[in-house]
Amino acid sequence: MGFKLLSKLLVYLTASIMAIASPLAFSVDSSGEYPTVSEIPVGEVRLYQIADGVWSHIATQSFDGAVYPSNGLIVRDGDELLLIDTAWGAKNTAALLAEIEKQIGLPVTRAVSTHFHDDRVGGVDVLRAAGVATYASPSTRRLAEVEGNEIPTHSLEGLSSSGDAVRFGPVELFYPGAAHSTDNLIVYVPSASVLYGGCAIYELSRTSAGNVADADLAEWPTSIERIQQHYPEAQFVIPGHGLPGGLDLLKHTTNVVKAHTNRSVVE
C-alpha cells in the first residue's frame, strides 16, 4: 500500500471513529477524501466538511520552486461564519470567499490569524475590503508590521502568557507558548472536538522541520505538551499544512522538532 493511500485511509478511519463516538456532533463529509496538494491548482481553494458547521479550507501556493498546501478553518456561528487564517495570499483568499459563498452561503463576518507569517495573514486586506472584521493577538499584529505583512485590524486580548485561553464565538483560542513562531495560536472547536494546530503542528508525513527561522526550538516541545494537557479530548487535529489526523500529530511534531534540534547540535 502506497504512503499517500495509507495517509488518506488514516484520515478516513479517524473521521469514521469520530462519527461513531459522537453521532450528534459529527456529520463528516462523505463526498470524498481530504484534498491534497496535487489536486488543488494554485489560485483555487477546496472546502472539506469535518463536522456539522465545521470545515477546513485548503489552498496551495508556490514557494521556492515548489507547491505547498495550506489549511485553515471555518466555523459556523449562528447565521454567520468565523474564518481562521487566510488562504495564503490575496488571490487565494478572494477564491476562498467565493467558494464559501458557493458552498455554504453564509457571510464571513470575523477572521482570526493564528500567527504573523504570510500563509496566515496574506489576504487580510481582501477580507477587510469584503467587510470582514480581522483579528490577531497584539504580538501577531506587531510582528506582521515588522515583517511588512498585512496586519489584522483588531487585537485579541488575554493571550499574552503561555497557557492563556479565551473564548471567541464558537471557538476557544489558546496560546501554548512559542513553537513554530513566538505568537502562534491554537484554535479548538469544543462542539466538535476539532483542534486546529496551525503551523505549530505537523502532518504525519512530514519528517523535516522546514521553516524554523522564527521558531523557538527549545520551547516548542513544552508548548505541545500544554496543548495535549489542555485538549486531551480532541479527536480531529488539523495541521497548518497537509493531512489531518488525531492527537498523534502532536507527538510526531515533537519528535521531528527534537530530531532537528539534535542534528543542529551535532553539526
Rank of each mutant, 00 (worst) to 15 (best):
H230E: 11
V67E: 15
E219W: 06
W220A: 00
G240Y: 03
G65C: 04
V124G: 05
S193W: 10
T254L: 13
V132Y: 00
E233Q: 11
V121S: 00
L195H: 05
L83R: 01
I50F: 07
T60C: 04
A178L: 06
V237R: 01
V124R: 02
Q61W: 08
A179W: 04
E101F: 08
P35K: 13
H230P: 06
G105M: 09
V37Y: 15
V108G: 03
Y68F: 15
L82R: 03
S264M: 10
E225A: 12
R226L: 08
T222M: 13
N184G: 04
E225G: 11
E157D: 14
P221F: 06
A200P: 03
V112S: 03
E145P: 06
T140D: 03
T86V: 01
S62P: 07
S205D: 13
N255I: 10
D118G: 07
S223H: 02
Y12T: 11
A144Q: 04
F116G: 03
E203T: 06
S208F: 09
P190Q: 11
L9C: 12
G43F: 07
N184W: 01
L9D: 13
G210W: 03
V28N: 10
D119F: 00
I186F: 06
P35E: 15
F63C: 05
V265W: 12
L127S: 01
I238S: 01
S27T: 11
V28F: 05
V212R: 05
G78N: 10
L96I: 05
P41Y: 08
A21L: 13
D79R: 11
D85N: 03
T114C: 01
R226G: 05
A200E: 03
M18H: 11
S22C: 09
L243R: 15
L81E: 02
S181M: 02
W88Y: 00
A15W: 06
G198Y: 03
Q61Y: 08
L73E: 00
I40Q: 15
F174R: 02
G32K: 07
N184H: 02
D164R: 11
G197R: 02
E219V: 09
S70I: 00
F174K: 00
E225C: 04
S193H: 12
I151W: 06
E267P: 10
A213I: 12
S7L: 07
Q49C: 06
G131M: 07
L247G: 11
H180Y: 06
A15D: 06
Y68T: 14
S27C: 14
Y34I: 15
D216Q: 08
V124W: 04
V37M: 14
G177I: 05
E145H: 14
R206E: 06
G210E: 07
E39C: 06
V54I: 07
R206S: 15
V256G: 01
D85F: 00
Y48I: 15
L173E: 02
L83I: 09
G240R: 04
L173S: 02
K258L: 10
V171L: 07
D64M: 08
H260T: 12
N184Q: 03
L143N: 08
L204Q: 13
L127G: 01
A25R: 14
A51H: 08
S113R: 03
S223D: 02
A129M: 11
V28T: 10
G242H: 05
I186E: 01
I58V: 14
R141H: 07
G158W: 07
L6P: 08
L250T: 02
L195G: 00
L247K: 11
P107W: 06
S137H: 09
